[in-house]
Amino acid sequence: MSADTIKLRLAGVGKRFAVAGKPDAVAVDDFSLDIRQGEFLVVVGPSGCGKTTVLNVLAGLDTATAGTVTIDERPIAGPGPDRGVMFQDYALFPWQTVRGNVGFGLKYGPAGASLSTAARNERIAHTIDLVGLKGSEDKYPHQLSGGMRQRVALARLIANEPDVLLMDEPLAALDAQTRTILQDELLRVWGQDRPASERRTVVFITHAIDEAVFLADRIAVMTAHPGRLKTIVDNPLPRPRTDATRALPEFQALVQRIWSLIRDEAYRATVA
């Protein structure tokens, strides 16, 4: 598969909600975007711009009211194990321990069907280790801090090894240090050291512009009311990206450029 294969395609996607006694609310309007196989695409935009709606449509949890959405040229009709989702509210199963949550898809879903029990446990243990939760395997979500819960959600997503990773502000609740570490880890899991054809496809929502610039191949900038795609910014920063990347003048310049694209709207959204 060449690196230019289109993995996910959104064509003229719109999402309206009926509001009693008023014209329909438009969450997303005429959104078209092709996401390439192995691409790390980050969506940024002010709150209320429909980022989460776009992600839910890709996940198959929400249906678009206009336009088409496809994966590998097949229409998306519902959720599937080929598209893993990391939810903004983590959606951890409170009756499962950390180990149970991370292994949930492997145990009860198709992701682990081809694995032996030993291989499954090995992968669960490895993933828990990866996100730095070793020693907390037997804890329940209510016994964990917000940051630790977020790591469990991340581990649960990674353990299933889906083709496409859909992530809704996955690192938002973390402290700055953990966040930096997990950004590095995420790039490693995604496969930044591998050729582009062996990478997974990631759609990543964030409101942190520096995070977007560090992670993304391309950055989709959205505007609100209605939610539209404003522009797509190519990110030329070389890979693999490391701590040194964050110190590059190009890195800062790109952060500034994207900030200037959404600044006016962000101010309006905050002040209004």
Binding site: L61, P79, G80, P81, F87, D89, A91, F93, G109, P110
Partner: peptide, 11 residues
């Protein structure tokens, strides 16, 4: 959201 999480894992 728990049901949705399970659906996205293909249950």
């Amino acid at each position: 959201s728990l049901v949705n999480a399970a659906r996205t894992m293909g249950l």
